[in-house]
Nucleic acid binder design. Structure first.
Lengths: 164, 164
DNA sequence: TATTGTTATACTCTATAACTATA
DNA sequence: TATAGTTATAGAGTATAACAATA
């Protein structure tokens, strides 16, 4: 089944506005030799593509990640969700508030420990997640469109060696 | 000549606090299959290592990039510096203000167009740049310590295909 | 009128700390 | 005392818009 495609004019606009190392009549000095700088440029592009995909819906990469985590791991505590994404407790609270206010997740009190909740996706949350996964997949494909499938696997393997 | 090394205990602390895909008893779902998410995790780690290297000096990755750009391209207008880093005019103004307030750069009025300045590094700025380049190089080496030299080149080439 | 830079302002994101309720 | 979550607050970083000077 075909998913709706992101307008390629818009994709190109994101690409055009992102800073680049080449093309400019400018000496980037050691920045061009830094792996970290290259990672940052790729991240800027990826973030822009995702933001474009989400539009003005209020969804952000972080909020999507939170919903995906909740959907895949029903019943987790907020503190565990936050840790998995490197967030403070208050930041986790706000991200979950966002989805709860849209009816996509619910906090269920645990009888065994009434200080904490288990966080669950609602049916509406599951549907939203399904929709967003399509958008995210497209954006990720757009990000890596200049790489072959083999190169994508290679890149992920190298990045994994860095952050795993 | 040996440069001062970053304390490896501190490096490991940055690594330990960064979110990871493995180790946690948690299903990251499609996040683990996204190149963009992997890029983000690597970026978080790289940013943390850099922040640790700069300490509480007020220097940030962006401010370092700005100073490096100024040092390598004497006399550029603020608007050109901003564009090279994807900044608005006001953000470029503030980044340059930071270095000017520390005596590291100066704005020289251009007689030919008195609306704009040329931005130049001072001798103090050149010295600071030299010092910071050493810290940045170390942080970048720490970021890629789990990769061989060949793998580092491979990674940079793949990232370049994405953002160039 | 258009452009460069500055300033004022507001917005987003985040963390810290104080607070509530449980344990 | 310690922990889970919430709320209040503050800080960093950013952009937009209004402004001054100049073209």
């Amino acid at each position: 089944m075909d998913r709706p495609r992101m307008d390629s004019v818009r994709l190109n606009e994101v690409r055009r506005r992102a800073p680049k190392l080449s093309g400019a009549p400018l000496d980037y000095g050691m920045l061009g030799q830094l792996t970290g700088f290259s990672i940052k440029l790729a991240w800027i592009l990826g973030y822009g593509l995702l933001a474009r995909a989400f539009g003005d819906s209020g969804v952000t990469p972080l909020r999507f990640s939170m919903l995906e985590l909740i959907g895949r791991n029903p019943g987790l505590q907020q503190i565990q969700l936050g840790q998995a994404l490197g967030l403070s407790r208050s930041a986790a609270t706000l991200a979950i508030d966002f989805w709860e206010s849209r009816g996509c997740v619910e906090r269920r009190t645990e009888p065994s420990d009434r200080r904490s909740f288990g966080v669950f996706a609602t049916p509406a949350g599951a549907a939203e997640l399904d929709r967003l996964r399509g958008l995210v997949e497209q954006a990720d494909e757009a990000l890596t469109e200049s790489l072959s499938d083999a190169e994508i696997l290679q890149l992920r393997a190298l990045l994994a060696k860095i952050h795993l």
